[in-house]
Amino acid sequence: MPLLHIAMRAGKPEAYRQAILDGLYRAMRETLNVPEGDEFMTISEHEPANFRCGDAYSVERSNDAVLIQITVFASRTAEQKKALYRRITDLLGENPGIRAEDVFINVLDAPKENWSVGNGIAQFA
């Protein structure tokens, strides 16, 4: 039950944005065993004055940097997360062609009782 928020600079075509969403979904299916149809993702586009990525941690980022935040059940292992990071970077490199240096990923763990996927019910608690 991942929830994804992607932030990036404005101006990329729809096909580019769709490739990001498709790549993220595929990476989650392959590494986290996310079920088919479990797609809850948003992309926020920001004007250059409202989007900044530095070069901290010896990573030289370009204007094509994407910030990806993924909230998941607190049951994922460190190995699954590492596999997810690598797979996302590989897939986004293939399509739409984002450099590995420009893929910033943050995973947040949330207990199952923190989720309601509809109808005001805590389905996983």
Score class of each variant (00 low, 15 high):
78 A>I: 11
8 M>L: 15
103 V>I: 13
16 Y>V: 03
10 A>S: 15
112 K>P: 02
109 D>K: 01
36 E>D: 13
110 A>I: 02
51 F>G: 00
52 R>P: 00
73 F>N: 00
108 L>M: 09
111 P>C: 02
44 S>D: 12
33 N>V: 00
91 L>I: 13
67 L>F: 14
66 V>P: 02
12 K>E: 14
69 Q>K: 09
41 M>D: 05
110 A>N: 03
55 D>M: 04
96 P>G: 03
77 T>A: 13
117 V>M: 14
85 Y>K: 01
25 Y>K: 01
13 P>L: 11
33 N>A: 11
79 E>I: 03
42 T>R: 10
107 V>T: 03
97 G>M: 06
83 A>K: 13
40 F>I: 04
29 R>H: 09
11 G>H: 15
97 G>I: 10
89 T>E: 06
93 G>R: 08
44 S>Y: 10
20 I>V: 15
93 G>F: 07
96 P>E: 06
110 A>F: 05
98 I>K: 00
10 A>F: 13
107 V>L: 06
7 A>W: 11
19 A>I: 11
74 A>F: 04
23 G>C: 09
18 Q>P: 06
29 R>G: 03
8 M>F: 13
70 I>V: 12
25 Y>D: 06
99 R>C: 02
90 D>T: 15
17 R>S: 06
58 S>A: 14
105 I>A: 00
65 A>R: 00
35 P>R: 05
95 N>M: 01
27 A>W: 12
79 E>L: 10
84 L>I: 04
59 V>N: 04
97 G>Q: 07
72 V>L: 07
29 R>I: 05
79 E>Q: 15
7 A>H: 14
119 N>Q: 14
60 E>G: 04
38 D>Y: 09
4 L>E: 08
36 E>F: 03
3 L>K: 13
29 R>S: 07
5 H>D: 09
39 E>L: 10
46 H>C: 04
87 R>H: 12
115 W>G: 00
41 M>K: 05
12 K>Y: 15
53 C>F: 09
59 V>Y: 08
6 I>R: 05
99 R>M: 02
79 E>V: 06
11 G>W: 15
28 M>K: 03
64 D>F: 09
32 L>D: 01
95 N>E: 09
15 A>Q: 14
87 R>K: 15
11 G>N: 13
7 A>T: 15
103 V>W: 02
15 A>D: 15
31 T>G: 05
23 G>D: 10
77 T>Q: 11
114 N>R: 09
106 N>K: 03
119 N>R: 14
61 R>F: 08
98 I>S: 01
119 N>Y: 15
70 I>F: 02
58 S>L: 13
10 A>K: 15
87 R>W: 12
125 A>Y: 14
46 H>V: 02
90 D>G: 03
5 H>L: 09
7 A>P: 04
9 R>T: 05
38 D>P: 03
53 C>R: 01
116 S>M: 09
21 L>N: 03
106 N>E: 05
99 R>L: 05
9 R>H: 08
22 D>F: 07
116 S>H: 10
18 Q>V: 11
95 N>L: 04
68 I>C: 02
103 V>H: 00
62 S>R: 04
119 N>S: 14
45 E>D: 12
64 D>R: 12
46 H>I: 03
113 E>F: 14
52 R>E: 06
32 L>R: 01
114 N>L: 10
47 E>C: 00
51 F>W: 04
